[in-house]
């Protein structure tokens, strides 16, 4: 048994430990389960702890290099890249071009989830770039790095 928190037996003291997130999980599941099976759980949750720590490290690194100041709870800057990327994935393409200059985090993430381009009536999406206007279309394709193969539908 390699769970370092086995000795802690009051839930209150667990609450004070901020990281790793899954500590509570570890402790909680290992109760009432016999020792042979809880070894499996420990290795399992360790893997989770490692990946959690990794993303957390990445986030805190980007926080330190790009945004040294601590942001308030009502600021979107508190969201890490994963959540921010997901949020931005609901934007239409036109808004993505417009909001590229909101912040470096947005610039980094905003085109990542744009994997499709759609054409309507021979013009691009909702803003009227003609499909024959090679220069404009190329410019757009230059910006959109994450496109999967493009299907042109009539």
């Amino acid at each position: 048994m390699c769970n370092p928190f086995d000795s802690i037996d009051s839930i209150g003291s667990i609450d004070c430990i901020p990281f790793p997130i899954y500590l509570g999980f570890n402790w909680w599941t290992s109760r009432g389960i016999d020792s042979t099976s809880s070894i499996d759980y420990n290795t399992d949750s360790k893997a989770i702890i490692m990946s959690r720590n990794e993303t957390q490290n990445m986030r805190s690194r980007s926080n330190h290099t790009i945004r040294p100041q601590v942001r308030g709870k009502d600021s979107l800057d508190r969201f890490g890249d994963d959540l921010c990327r997901l949020l931005l994935s609901y934007l239409p393409l036109e808004d993505r071009f417009r909001y590229e200059c909101v912040s470096k985090q947005w610039q980094r993430l905003i085109y990542e989830t744009q994997t499709e381009l759609s054409f309507k009536y021979r013009s691009l999406d909702s803003f009227g770039v003609n499909i024959n206007d090679k220069e404009s279309v190329n410019e757009i394709l230059d910006i959109l790095d994450y496109l999967s193969p493009i299907n042109v539908l009539s």
Binding site: I66, R67, Q69, R71, G72, D74, S75, L76, D77, D95, R98, Y99, C101, V102, S103, K104, W106
Partner: peptide
């Protein structure tokens, strides 16, 4: 944020402009 400008979005979501 639909239809807002960059500045408005920054103000609204309290995003720090690091450019």
């Amino acid at each position: 944020i639909k239809g807002k400008s960059c500045t408005e979005v920054r103000e609204m979501l309290k995003i720090h402009n690091d450019f």
